[in-house]
Design a protein around this nucleic acid. Structure first.
Lengths: 211, 211
DNA sequence: ATTATCTATAGATCTATAGATAATGC
DNA sequence: ATTATCTATAGATCTATAGATAATGC
């Protein structure tokens, strides 16, 4: 169910390709301007798909844009999972998660711009970074590494801070993105109750490399 | 300049009233749905203003919505200033600022809903909470009370966390808003380098009362 | 006399659908 | 034979403006 069944025949593959072209166009539009008032005609044109085909797949513009955001969230979540595989310490996972997200703004600009525009509404989503971070927060609290009033508050602080950083960097890029990301990761660890010197150490560790 | 000159005659007062009716309608629309694709016709109707009058005041919908956001930011900033008058400790100002903002979601729902929808784009604005918080952050760092990599990062964490909390509470309201706000204020003080027990104490102090 | 507001409307979209065309399943 | 896509278009908006109406300045 989470992985859609691979299309069994050419019909379904063609249908899936058209749908994905529309989703891709919607993602590009969300990333570039965040402006969802663009016409369905323009979307279809961007997707290089006949105008009428739109209604074969989506009942409305909103339905398409909703799916486009979910699509970006899924991609984001998978990428984070891959890079955090084998990292066990919740504090390290949180710090790396922040820094990987900022680095993805460079490597996956479209995905992260979509989330920058739409992420605040999805901080409690069960896709993307949120469910993973929530796990880490709960684990960290259970083993006495973190302290906070509630995981939800901690998640709001974490997600909101990350989005604000992505936004800031996207409007006023500074020199080294990982400098900012390390500083934010350190701030988040302190927020979670990690002693300042340890927060600094953990936030400074080299990022796990891609497999 | 910051306070617009009081309208000198009836013409200007009427003109200002029409303009403010449009801004008010835009604020209500931004607060309720955040959907700026509503037609100019609907906006004029909401404002109880003739359709053509719109163009007497604004060249486009975007121009109106931009002003509506600035208007909400100004109101927010003034309200915060009033309540924080006489509070000198930067840590206390930051903690109260967070808690007052959450409480304003109850007392000034429209204003805060506008900012919830549009705030992320204005975290570096020179209106609203940001310039005030930035002052407090710099002062706190100067007197050795705060420690952080840069005021901009700290501001991003503060503003993003607050917006995420407002968002969370607006979609899933919990029992006591000041409980959440105190927890967030405490988290923010720890993030800024205040020792955990002191952060807890400061975040628990009674809010300054309105004059 | 001057200025703002309002009403009416032309022209430009935009959405949703119907019907024709093209591609694949069996 | 079935299904998806594409083209064309009707009808419903929506924007921007022109010109009439109402209110105030001096």
């Amino acid at each position: 169910m989470s992985t859609p069944a691979p299309p069994s025949n050419r019909f379904e593959r063609r249908r899936a390709a058209t749908r994905q072209a529309l989703v891709g166009a919607a993602r590009r539009i969300l990333a570039e301007s965040g402006d969802t008032s663009v016409s369905i005609q323009m979307i279809a044109e961007q997707a290089d798909v006949g105008f009428g085909s739109f209604y074969n797949h989506f009942a409305s513009k909103d339905a398409l844009f909703d799916e486009a955001v979910l699509d970006a969230l899924e991609e984001y979540g998978r990428a984070i999972d891959e890079r955090l595989e084998g990292v066990d310490d919740p504090a390290e996972r949180i710090a790396f998660g922040v820094r990987l997200s900022v680095s993805m703004a460079g490597t996956h600009p479209e995905t992260m711009q979509v989330l920058r525009h739409q992420g605040l509404a999805h901080i409690q989503s069960d896709r993307g970074l949120s469910p993973r971070a929530l796990d880490d927060l709960r684990t960290g609290a259970a083993i006495g590494r973190f302290s906070f009033a509630s995981p939800e508050i901690a998640l709001a602080a974490l997600g909101g801070s990350l989005l604000a950083l992505l936004h800031m960097r996207s409007t006023r890029p500074t020199a080294d993105s990982d400098d900012d990301a390390r500083a934010m990761a350190e701030a988040m660890l302190r927020m979670l109750g990690i002693p300042p010197d340890e927060a600094h150490t953990i936030a400074s560790r080299p990022l796990p490399v891609r497999d």
